[in-house]
């Protein structure tokens, strides 16, 4: 039996683009039947969006009041209950997928393949290890489904134009009652999304303060870009955590990436390896960021950025 299940990521209203990227990874497996499961309080809208993705055969729409927030402890048994019908179970390698899928894998009784960046065949994959310093090719043993997260920066989003059927399914497990969602605090959602924006402008420790970081926001706005940051800038409180790019932040693949006042630590670089063009601005000509930048400019960012804004 060859059939793929993708667990949709969404916010209750909109299907996250990470799901369309996971679908592209799934299509590389050479398996024709691809189902997308949508767990939501009211799945109709998201299920409709999933059904429009090209390559999806069926959308499984599972409604439940306790699916209003995606809690791994609640969703993992649902995924495990579906597993018997599938050769592959996939989710995006976002915090949603990373939280949920290993829990489901353990219930199914298999190791997970994390962060697939390339598909060799239906059970053989490339994935990064050591913060991207090495790439390992792994093979999943026979005897269970392949449970894997897809590194979204490695795959473009699948296009629309599909018309999959939508089937309603009933939840199979109950709410364990031991895990409660309280709240989520995040950016206001204005400006392009860091994970999918074609241009990203990131600032580092060199910005020196939250007030100074405004210069990065200004440049980003001017270019219609999303704002990112190094860990040092987040740790220092200049910007919120969701802007962190790197091994433990977001792994992104914009067409154009600006690293401004960022030294280029390996943990940062691993987050931007798939960027089209990397521009580095740093006052230290020896900064490691220049070793991987496509275009480098040595100088003081506080002089260069205003000049750049004027030139745009």
């Amino acid at each position: 039996m060859s059939r793929i299940l993708i667990i949709a990521e969404h916010d209750g209203a909109i299907l996250n683009v990470a799901t369309a990227k996971t679908l592209t990874g799934a299509r590389a497996l050479g398996v024709d039947d691809i189902d997308v499961a949508v767990f939501a309080a009211d799945p109709a809208a998201v299920a409709g969006q999933a059904a429009e993705l090209n390559g999806v055969s069926r959308v499984l729409s599972v409604a439940g009041a306790d699916f209003a927030h995606p809690l791994a402890a609640r969703l993992a048994p649902e995924v495990a209950a579906m597993a018997g019908d599938y050769s592959h179970i996939l989710a995006p390698s976002t915090t949603f997928g990373k939280d949920l899928l290993p829990r489901a894998a353990a219930l199914i009784g298999v190791n997970q393949v994390s962060d697939i960046m390339e598909v060799i065949d239906a059970r053989t994959f490339k994935r990064p290890i050591y913060a991207g310093n090495a790439i390992v090719t792994v093979r999943v043993p026979e005897g269970g489904p392949v449970v894997a997260t897809i590194r979204t920066a490695s795959f473009a989003a699948s296009e629309g134009g599909g018309s999959a059927s939508i089937e309603e399914r009933q939840p199979q497990a109950g709410d364990p009652g031991h895990t409660r969602f309280i709240k989520v605090e995040g950016s206001d959602g204005s400006g392009p999304d860091l994970s999918s924006a074609p241009i990203v402008v990131s600032g580092g420790r060199a910005l020196g303060s939250a007030d100074n970081f405004a210069i990065i926001y200004g440049l980003a706005k001017r270019m219609g870009a999303a704002v990112g940051a190094s860990r040092a800038a987040v740790d220092a409180g200049y910007v919120p955590n969701e802007l962190q790019v790197g091994q433990t932040g977001k792994i992104i693949a914009p067409d154009l990436y600006f690293a401004i006042g960022i030294s280029g630590a390996i943990q940062h670089l691993t987050g931007i390896k798939d960027a089209g063009t990397i521009v580095a601005i740093n006052k230290d000509a020896e900064a490691p960021i220049f070793e991987i930048a496509d275009l480098g400019l040595v100088g003081d960012l506080f002089e260069i950025i205003p000049e750049l804004e004027k030139a745009l």
Binding site: L71, F96, I182, P240, N241, E242
Partner: peptide
Amino acid sequence: EVDAGLETI
């Protein structure tokens, strides 16, 4: 720390 920001559970 989640992609959307900070979630409290």
